[in-house]
Amino acid sequence: MRGMVIGVSTATLRIAGARSLKDKRRVLKSVLTRLHNRFNVAAAEVGRHDSHQEAEVGIACVSTAGSHADQVLAAVMGFLEAEGEIELVDYHTELL
């Protein structure tokens, strides 16, 4: 049986254009859906729920190789850095 690796990243995002929680949720929903569709990862808001302009997002992927999981999560962070409606403030990645 082959091993399983779970890659997990937590990202802190700033959504400068959000003037309300509704604006924030609209932007986040769009970004999270694109992450899932493009990278086949699970992603959800996991913190800073009451802040209009900040969000903490958890991203996870499952792979048979740690290097692959790390590459996928690095690509996700690159996508978030290039995203126009948000700013990637900080992130942390670990492999389980």
Rank of each mutant, 00 (worst) to 15 (best):
V31H: 11
L13G: 04
E81W: 02
C61Q: 07
A42Q: 13
A11E: 00
L35R: 02
K22E: 02
N37P: 11
V27S: 10
A82V: 03
I15D: 00
E56P: 05
A55N: 06
E56D: 04
L35T: 08
L80A: 02
A69R: 00
A60P: 09
V57G: 03
E81S: 06
I15E: 03
L88A: 02
I59Y: 02
E54N: 12
D23G: 12
R48E: 09
E56L: 15
I59S: 04
A75G: 12
A43G: 13
S51I: 05
R14M: 06
L73S: 09
E56H: 09
R38P: 07
F39E: 08
T64D: 09
N40D: 10
R34E: 10
T64Y: 12
G47N: 02
R26E: 05
I15G: 05
D50F: 07
H92G: 08
A65Q: 14
T10E: 08
E81Q: 05
K22P: 07
S9A: 15
E94I: 03
E83V: 00
A69L: 03
A60Q: 14
T10V: 14
E45H: 00
K22D: 04
S63C: 12
L96D: 12
D23R: 11
T10N: 11
G78L: 09
A69Q: 03
V8W: 08
K29Y: 08
T93M: 02
V72L: 08
V57L: 10
V62W: 14
V62A: 15
R14C: 06
M77T: 05
K29G: 13
V89A: 12
T93E: 01
D23A: 11
A44L: 09
E87F: 04
E87H: 01
L95M: 03
C61S: 14
D50T: 13
V62I: 15
R25H: 02
H68L: 11
V72K: 01
A74W: 05
E81I: 00
L35K: 08
E94Q: 13
I86Q: 01
A69M: 09
R34M: 09
G84R: 15
D70P: 02
E85Y: 11
V41K: 14
E85H: 14
V89M: 13
A65D: 13
G78F: 08
S67W: 05
F79S: 02
E56N: 11
A16K: 14
R38F: 06
S63M: 02
V76K: 06
V57H: 02
Q71N: 12
C61V: 15
K22C: 07
S51Y: 07
A60Y: 03
T93V: 12
N40L: 11
T64I: 10
G17C: 05
Y91L: 07
Y91M: 05
A18L: 00
S9T: 14
F79N: 00
S30Y: 08
L96A: 10
S20F: 07
S30K: 15
L96F: 13
L88D: 02
R26W: 07
R26P: 05
L21R: 10
E45W: 07
V57I: 04
A69T: 07
A42M: 13
E56W: 07
L88K: 00
